[in-house]
Amino acid sequence: MQIPSLGRVGVYLPVPFTDPPAPRELPAAAVRLADAGYGTIWTNEFPGKDALVQLAVLLEATERVVFGTGVANIWTRDARTAAAAAEFLHRAHPGRLVLGLGVGYPQQAADTGREYGDPLATMRDYVDRMRPAEYPRILAANGPKMLALAGELADGAMPAMLPPEATALARRVLGPGKLLVAGLAVMPGASRAEAVARVTGTLGQPWFARAVARAGYPADADRLVDAVVAYGEPDAIAVKVREHLAAGADHVALLPQSGSDFATDVEMLARLAPAADQPI
């Protein structure tokens, strides 16, 4: 199984969790980002927005872009349903799909009437129930145990919003030959104070505090912000991209954090593309 060429830098389609854009706006946005130079576009998922259905539309609207789910939540669909959908997309658009899977949070399991259980056992069971694939599968993994599982059962991993030291740890755990996608929070044009406010909100999530502690950072937003958020001018953001690539990432996926409307974020990301993809 050959992993598609993702390029050094990709971008999330900046669909907000509230007030999502009309469906017809998504293909136009993907084309705009592709024209700006991004060879890989990632999509998120939340109730009411199916990641794989979305990719069916986006793949048809573009010719060469690789699309990845970042990530498809395993509580949204049965493992065999996910496998069948991803296989269909891969056969229709060979070499243009990366299926990212995530175990998510207990509330997401509860919303489907199921028990969250042990996340490692749950993810193992889910991947085991998917038949072998001709497209790459990666796991959302911010801790060493899930990273090890990704190295065992999948083709790679996607840690997100963590410092370069965590990317280096992920590479050591995964070993060579596995795809490592680092999700980098980006806030172009933002001040440091605005970036600190964003990190402060994320510190309320226990997984984040544990992950940054493993990387040697205290759970202090003011001391952590420069390590986990790329903010300010395009050249400063490019520096953070290069840090993750140097730490062992194969690909950096830009995660917009501005909170602006969809169209504004798309244009912001398009303008950022030339700087973000500067060589290491």
Rank of each mutant, 00 (worst) to 15 (best):
P21D: 09
V98F: 07
V31A: 12
A141S: 14
L33Q: 05
K178R: 15
P218H: 10
P21R: 10
L169G: 02
A34D: 11
Y135W: 14
A221K: 01
L169D: 15
P176Y: 06
A197H: 10
G70Y: 12
A140P: 06
G248W: 04
M158E: 09
V98N: 07
E45W: 05
A160K: 08
V212Q: 02
V173E: 05
A82R: 09
G216I: 06
L52V: 07
E152S: 11
E87D: 15
E243L: 11
A160M: 14
A166T: 03
A238K: 10
G175A: 12
L99D: 01
A213Q: 14
A84V: 10
Q108D: 13
T62V: 06
R129T: 04
V173S: 03
Y116C: 06
L26G: 00
R131D: 13
V241R: 00
D277F: 07
L203G: 05
L245A: 02
G204M: 07
T81D: 11
P159V: 04
V181D: 00
L26S: 00
M1K: 13
A140R: 03
A56W: 03
D35T: 14
L224V: 01
L59V: 07
R192W: 07
I3V: 15
V57W: 11
A273S: 08
V15R: 01
R172Q: 14
D155S: 11
V228A: 03
A140F: 08
D125T: 13
M187K: 11
I74A: 07
A227E: 11
A190L: 09
A227H: 13
M1P: 11
A170Y: 00
P163M: 03
G95L: 09
W207Y: 15
E165D: 13
N142Y: 12
G143A: 13
R242K: 12
F262D: 02
A157D: 03
V11L: 06
V127S: 02
V53A: 09
A56D: 13
P206F: 07
P279Y: 08
T200A: 14
P23R: 05
A92E: 15
I280S: 10
A29D: 02
V241N: 00
R96G: 02
D235H: 15
G259C: 06
A29F: 04
T18S: 12
P136T: 07
M268A: 14
A227V: 07
D50P: 03
T62G: 02
Y217W: 12
R242S: 11
G113K: 11
Q107M: 14
E134I: 13
A148G: 11
